[in-house]
Design a protein around this nucleic acid. Sequence first.
DNA 1: ACGGGCAGAGTAAGCGCTTACCGTTATCGA
DNA 2: TCGATAACGGTAAGCGCTTACTCTGCCCGT
Lengths: 366, 366
Amino acid sequence: METPDGGPPRTLTIYDVARRAGVSIASVSRVLNGRNSPRPETRERVLAAVRELGFVPDGAARALSNRLKEVVGVVFRRTSDMPDDAFSDEEESLLFADVINRGIEAGARTRGFDLLMSTVDVFDHSPHARITSIAGKSDGLILHDQVLSPVGIVRVAQRTPVVTLAGTPTPSSVNVRSDNAAGMRELTKHLLVDHGYPTVAYLAGHVDSPDNVARAEAFEVVVGEIGIEAWTGELWRGNYMAAGGAKVIRDILHRNLPLPRAIVCANDQTAIGVMYTLAKHGIRVPQDVAVTGFDDIPVARHLHPQLTTCRQPIQKLGATAFDVLYSMISGEGKPDTEVVLPTSLVIRGSCGCQVESAPPWEASLG
Amino acid sequence: METPDGGPPRTLTIYDVARRAGVSIASVSRVLNGRNSPRPETRERVLAAVRELGFVPDGAARALSNRLKEVVGVVFRRTSDMPDDAFSDEEESLLFADVINRGIEAGARTRGFDLLMSTVDVFDHSPHARITSIAGKSDGLILHDQVLSPVGIVRVAQRTPVVTLAGTPTPSSVNVRSDNAAGMRELTKHLLVDHGYPTVAYLAGHVDSPDNVARAEAFEVVVGEIGIEAWTGELWRGNYMAAGGAKVIRDILHRNLPLPRAIVCANDQTAIGVMYTLAKHGIRVPQDVAVTGFDDIPVARHLHPQLTTCRQPIQKLGATAFDVLYSMISGEGKPDTEVVLPTSLVIRGSCGCQVESAPPWEASLG
DNA sequence: ACGGGCAGAGTAAGCGCTTACCGTTATCGA
DNA sequence: TCGATAACGGTAAGCGCTTACTCTGCCCGT
């Protein structure tokens, strides 16, 4: 009952290939890695054996020997705030994190790296355990916003290369982000100066998110410069999600409080919730209230009116994160502790401008 | 210049931990794995050493020794048809594949597995190389639709466990998909029987996609039963993307050909392109032409009118794929060669019904 | 009081690969 | 023709972990 049909059912190793090709395992390895060229004839024999056997070299063994796994760990936060219906699925597909990941992958691919992905959700008691697991399986980590506490980051960063996205920079990790302050400044000025709106609110994201903090500060500075009052505070606290934006507006309306002339949302998702709720109550955007987002996620163009927002080079953010991490892994030394990418204002209809841009796929047609 | 500050800059190993705790590496390993309980005192010493050192066990070594990596490879297709502007980014974020991946992750997490992700794009000359690389780094593969030819699947499946999503089943792999035929039948009947539309077209997806084939066939069967003619063929060939749907409608309009009363799109993305183009030409949906999709991706609810479509349990599809793969990996023997999940009709406005459902986040509010 | 039994902990043998090191053979110059 | 030289290719030593096997010392029964 050992070898039912003559062939060993064991996993195929380099030894099997070597035997079949009539060479040593060293030669097989050399052929597989394109090292100092074995003779063409030998090479052919090995290749033939590999093909016939359908041999796939074991990544773990390879990694162990090379001290390089060619895997980058990516951890991002899952935005499900409702534990009960984790499977009702098809919520707002995350978009922002997804696009960043695409960028990371694009960068990784050029170096032959693959992505090991993991998510952390709000209820995770010890993200540390998950992250340690990922760290052990990869050569370095890219941590999205809000996945690990600053102390946690410092801790893991002294054992493995770490790049954070929109997080706090630490002595041992590098931070890659886009220029929130400049973007928000530009956006707010557009609303207050170009449109001249008299009142404006900032609908915040997670209070402990560095991105949110930077945006809020920039917003307040501009509003202060203009000399009007910023509507912020407890009442205007969202959570980066459509539900959060919707709830804030609902509360305000229920309590019969006034709305500002313009609402600057912490991100696009929030703006979606805001616009929906306003529309539901018969409040017109942008005629009655102007709304803006931040990020320029793909759906921003499908809203009515289309969303004016601040575009982050989302994909590039990911690609850059990988590049930085790669240089740390390959020991080219740690680069700067921070890389900041520029943002750009995207004017569409929701701020009050008369623009209607075509969807992206329109442009690419003949 | 060897050890600048006394401490060895080598990577930390289990030996370091053992030395520090004053025990053998075997004990450290046992503590780390919760095996036949070492004495509590010893246990504590080891744990302390691990904590102090910030030790992270190497996944590769572990995998090599255990013959189990606790990693599942996931390969999906990137839908960028434009090689030139690969970095103009922020295209239609893929959604469908993303949601499936979420499901896979949810399943994987319960078993302590992580996801190794890789994409293949249309121009990939040899997806085989990429897939082999992933295969070597994981315990099994989940292949999305359209990432590898049937022969390729067969080849890789005889060396590693493989589950395909919406692909052709092969003797050595298992296929997980949703019931395209039933869903399309229901959808088509709704249009032809409930609404009584006299003419209807099927706007196809990739011709070589098994999903598309199944949907097209079901569509034609129903249309045949009703006794009217199906509008299909060369003219109605899309590519699962908004651009494809838009192009088909544009061509028809340019050539002054008539439109059917209803258009059944191969998927939601296609429907988006169709609805946009119709609107642009002043054709009203659903008053002039009814449109339906397939999948029920999140944006389907943000369209105007909201899209009537056939919901696939997308996330569950992923979770199921993992479960099946896991049973193959853990050697519980290969289960059935196919698992089919049920679909359900989602009636919204685009088919002509008077329904306006609230966005998902609306329901979850207090 | 002595030997059997047992629990806790250590030793060492791999897991499948890469590669430094070295033996072998062919090649070339004198 | 013979030794030097290079080019191939084989042998074996790890990479960092798990675990079978073994050893030590202790507790217990008789």
